[in-house]
Design a protein around this nucleic acid. Structure first.
Lengths: 105, 105
DNA sequence: CTATATTATGAATATCCATTCATATAAATT
DNA sequence: AATTTATATGAATGGATATTCATAATATAG
């Protein structure tokens, strides 16, 4: 795998987490695996849509799925993913737009 | 600015850096400001396209522009941006796909 | 065995977005 | 003043992708 493929993978990764519903899914499973129904309730979107996004996240190796009976449990594929999510959030708060708008939760 | 706007800004940010040409631009100016012509040569894309992407990056507060005579110099809007770029790259190398393919430059 | 609960999937649609092309603006050089 | 250099911009287009809908698949419960 050369540098170009790395960059392609990096773009694929960033684009994958850079979508509203997927980011909400990730933030919801950040503290441990959750089943699909649970995630659907948390993000407030259609089951079908959540399932599509979970597949997308899995194809990008961002989450892993564990099957237990008729339920599927999803969790982050790597502990460092949580760091990136947290750090990019805290960075965004420091960027000019947020600063101007007095950016605190 | 409440939590929802933060998340919107985070998505906007991640999506903005999650594009091949823009990521290449960012990696090229990571060590200091560069003029447009220089960036165009580095990324090997049309001047017009690079200009559009620079505008996009500026609108997202990811880069800042400095005008000097007829030249425009672009640089990262925040020192922590470099960290995110580097860290997401190193994280991607640790994800399953890259591991399988024996992922080293 | 039928019904219900849980998750996945394919097709269709609609929206978004990267790219190209043509052109504008503005400064510098001749 | 005319030409060249450097950068920006608006419109058009093609391709990607989020969402919805209908339905499949599979397991459990009654």
């Amino acid at each position: 795998m050369d540098i170009h493929n790395i960059e392609e993978e990096q773009v694929k990764f960033l684009r994958c987490i850079g979508e509203a519903t997927r980011l909400r899914i990730l933030k919801h499973i950040i503290d441990g695996e959750k089943c699909v129904t649970d995630i659907v309730n948390a993000v407030g979107k259609e089951q079908s849509l959540v399932s599509h996004h979970l597949k997308h996240l899995k194809d990008c190796n961002i989450v892993i799925a564990r099957q237990k009976a008729q339920k599927a449990y999803y969790s982050l594929a790597h502990h460092r993913l949580a760091e990136i999510i947290i750090q990019s959030e805290s960075l965004v708060k420091e960027l000019p737009v947020c600063q101007e708008k007095d950016c605190n939760e």
